[in-house]
Design a protein around this nucleic acid. Structure first.
Lengths: 245, 245
DNA sequence: GTCATTCCTTGACCCAGATCAAGAAACGGT
DNA sequence: ACCGTTTCTTGATCTGGGTCAAGGAATGAC
């Protein structure tokens, strides 16, 4: 049995779909081609409201989307951050459990849910691949829970920056020299919603990390990391061995 | 296509396995029978340490287990609570990402991981059923993130009690009259680890809810809920329609 | 360029929940 | 019943991060 985690291009779709395998499912790729389509969203636009019927599944081609939960009094917690190549939607679920919002202009590659689910029944590897991806998300959610429940504000900020650095590195080719550079794809308020803080605290802690030389800023969004180990130490992660590897 | 979510008995195993379907996979059930075995653990015993090789998957037959994460300095966050019928383990993963601990005496129904994974390849419905279960866990984790990031101590306690009440009700037959009664399966410290609080704050908030008539206690662990709607209101959940239905 | 808007920073003050500390209640073993 | 251990409660005090408030820096439209 060969490796089903090999990523493949899905037709003219600029991202690499991870739900199918290059070597053994060419016909499935063709069928996926037939039911896929693209949708664009503007920055700030809500893609799906919690409770809405979900008519499609798909993956992010470009741009950033967030999954958030909101309480009646307006308190808001981000519960998912979708970068290019991330999958959205739950096969077998008819309604969305959370708000999905485009925080930048966004393009998604979508599959109508019903045909996609029919394909899943016929082609078992898709379900297996989705299971693997969902388990990854679950692991990430559980790391996130440690952050929310037990980390200090400073540790939360350091963690967020290193999480984005890691995601970035796995997406793009890695820079080989110079200090690591990361673009924060979120506003201070969105970071606060991610971390369970207020935007003022986010701003203060970023300033503090800057003053202490852990990071430096070019503009508001562009972060330079002179010493990644130092940042990981600040994040309180116990030896993140898999980092950037 | 009939409903694959039908629960079935797995031989003499006292719980209902949810990974297989009654009507279309009798032979799979037989194969599962052949590779399954039971393991018992004492209260307080660690089942798996984070980073250990995971040699089995399985489900809880009786007792309570927790998934926890610990930072070097000892800060601890619970990231999963396993009640009878809950599934443990990640097919496709070789090492555990979190500590799994029995908090009461515990019996698990296990399947050696390798044969289980081989079965998954052959019998697609298992992967589909596991995907469904994992998506449920992911939804629960995301609700939990809202709790950790944005709820007050009082809301956290009220949420925990109603979560346990809901899990309880789906497990046992529902009482038809009198105030709803719930046994807390956790110590105050374990509740604190669940909620991202200290045990003192847990104790104080339970006392406060008692004083305000939202709950009453019989002993330390047995909770009576005179008015469930009142409790849900205290929990800050926006109209939990699915509750106990 | 100028203006309006959005986003970010910093300061002053406050409070929910953490920390430190002392007992009280519950539980299990003999 | 007695005793040791664990678990729970309550009080006093402290503090990290929230809240309120003001102003500065980017950004984009025209």
């Amino acid at each position: 049995m060969h490796d089903h985690s090999v990523h493949v291009q899905c037709g003219d779709c600029p991202i690499r779909h991870r739900a199918v395998c290059a070597r053994c499912e060419t016909d499935e790729l063709q069928r996926l081609e037939q039911i896929k389509y693209y949708r664009s969203f503007q920055a700030g636009q809500t893609i799906i409201w919690s409770g809405d019927r979900m008519e499609f599944v798909g993956s992010v081609v470009s741009g950033i989307a967030t999954l958030t939960q909101t309480m009646e009094d307006g308190r808001r917690q981000m519960v998912g951050l979708l970068l290019p190549s991330d999958f959205v939607g739950r096969p077998g679920r008819s309604t969305a459990a959370f708000d999905v919002t485009a925080t930048t202009d966004l393009v998604m590659c979508c599959f109508r849910k019903k045909p996609f689910e029919e394909m899943m029944v016929v082609t078992p590897h898709i379900a297996q691949r989705l299971l693997e991806m969902t388990l990854d998300e679950l692991d990430a959610a559980r790391e996130w829970m440690l952050l929310l429940g037990r980390k200090t504000a400073r540790e939360k900020i350091a963690s967020l920056i290193s999480i984005i650095a890691r995601r970035d590195a796995s997406l793009h080719l890695r820079k080989t020299s110079g200090p690591l550079a990361v673009d924060l794809p979120l506003t201070r308020e969105e970071m606060a919603d991610y971390l369970g803080l207020t935007l003022e605290t986010v701003s203060r802690q970023i300033s503090a990390l800057k003053k202490d030389g852990v990071i430096s800023l070019e503009g508001n969004r562009h972060v330079l990391i002179p010493d990644l180990d130092r940042l990981l130490e600040e994040a309180g992660d116990d030896s993140d061995g898999g980092m950037l590897v």
